[in-house]
Design a protein around this nucleic acid. Structure first.
Lengths: 225, 225
DNA sequence: CTGACACTTCGGCCGGGACCGAAGCATTCC
DNA sequence: GGAATGCTTCGGTCCCGGCCGAAGTGTCAG
């Protein structure tokens, strides 16, 4: 029920004329059909059809006043939806996005139990996978021979025994992509602390990357965070 | 500048095939082009065109791995955008005036001790049985191999030991049909809470299905509640 | 009543885009 | 090496839906 509706709603917004109408109403004002037709750049009869469709979909509401009909966005949720689409649309070309420092810091690098998460965590995981050091499957992961050599060269101690999974991935909630967990993830994190590449931040989970870390992480993993 | 882009992004989501692809990726997993073609109900070459368009728009990112290409949502903002559209979409059909709200909500989804009941509970049980994931007999039930794989893919932890029955059914008093109880029923319920698919309502037993839950439950169990 | 204005409905035209078959690369397996 | 698999590009068909002109409904002014 809700999947075809997703396409339906999006298709409504996807027409240029209708998108123009919606953006004209975005600030909450109520405008007449003729004004909206002009804003959309189409004739009144064409706009009328668009307005009827958006009415039926519940995107707009209308009040009759004399021989005018004032249209406006039906609910605040509609405005918020438009805003979230614009956020995605205006983010794709440039990389500009205002954000709180704390939020940004956590997204950049943080701990997840005893391993790394955020851009740092997924960056390391990507690097290891692209270089053939690890293979990540649906139900865990494995370290290749070159991966073991790489870890030894890095100085990460993965000899710790135990019943704990050796190498697994863990979905990152800010990046929505996997980072490394398990013994390997923890060993890499510990080694980075020992090397002074990262330090604890104010928030217990927050991490700060040191100047030396910038260099080391770039050399070891090709990261530029 | 951002108006034509609004229509552009929305038009991408507005095609049914592309909307299916996006919803299949909604939970953050990465899927191959072929899997997505199947999910969208189109041939691989058609899906390939869709994927290319969404890549160029910055909605998706891709990782090459061997001869597979794993696609995923590019950023968390994309997921949030989809959720906000779903929120509007699932609100639009003005609910056919129900009986008492409380009664209707309880019939739709509620807890029964530590597992799900109501339409939600029997829907999940039906789905698992129809797909051969569980067999329900008179005095209990058993989970098949495919069922164990399904639960693991879902992220439901059924490893908890104890003397408790592993999988049993429980007669639903509103639907007069069985829903799942035991360790399996509890694990599924817990996982749905963790995924944010359902939340507690006012009444301790009452449950509310979130917009994301609408999607997730449809995807995982084929439910349209 | 008559004419002006706001808006909608109807009918036909037309273009963009979704779709698939066939063929072309890339990668892996035997 | 050759075959199989995953994915993409190309070419051609076809249909959905936006668009406008003309005509219909409703409201206000004089």
């Amino acid at each position: 029920m809700s999947i075809p509706q997703l396409a339906e709603i999006a298709a409504l917004i996807g027409d240029p004329a209708r998108a123009n109408i919606l953006t004209a109403l975005f600030d909450g004002r109520a405008l007449t059909a003729t004004e909206l037709a002009f804003a959309a750049g189409v004739t009144p009869q064409t706009a009328s059809g668009h307005l009827a469709k958006m009415m039926q979909a519940g995107l707009l509401s209308v009040v009759k006043q004399g021989r005018h009909r004032y249209y406006r966005l039906a609910t605040p949720q509609v405005a918020q939806m438009l805003e979230s689409i614009i956020a995605v649309a205006s983010m794709t070309p440039p990389r500009l996005r205002p954000r709180t420092k704390r939020e940004d810091a956590l997204r950049r690098a943080r701990t997840c139990y005893d391993h790394f998460a955020g851009l740092l965590g997924v960056g390391i995981a990507d690097s290891l996978r692209e270089n053939g050091h690890v293979n990540l499957g649906d139900d865990g992961g494995e370290v290749t021979d070159s991966g073991m050599a790489f870890l030894e060269a890095l100085g990460a101690d993965v000899s710790r025994p135990g019943r704990r999974p050796f190498c697994r991935h863990c979905l990152d909630w800010t990046e929505r992509r996997p980072h490394l967990a398990g013994v390997v993830g923890a060993a890499i994190a510990l080694r980075c602390f020992d090397l002074g590449w990262v330090k604890r931040g104010r928030d217990p989970r927050e991490l700060a990357i040191t100047p030396g870390g910038q260099l080391g992480l770039h050399q070891a993993f090709g990261l530029t965070i």
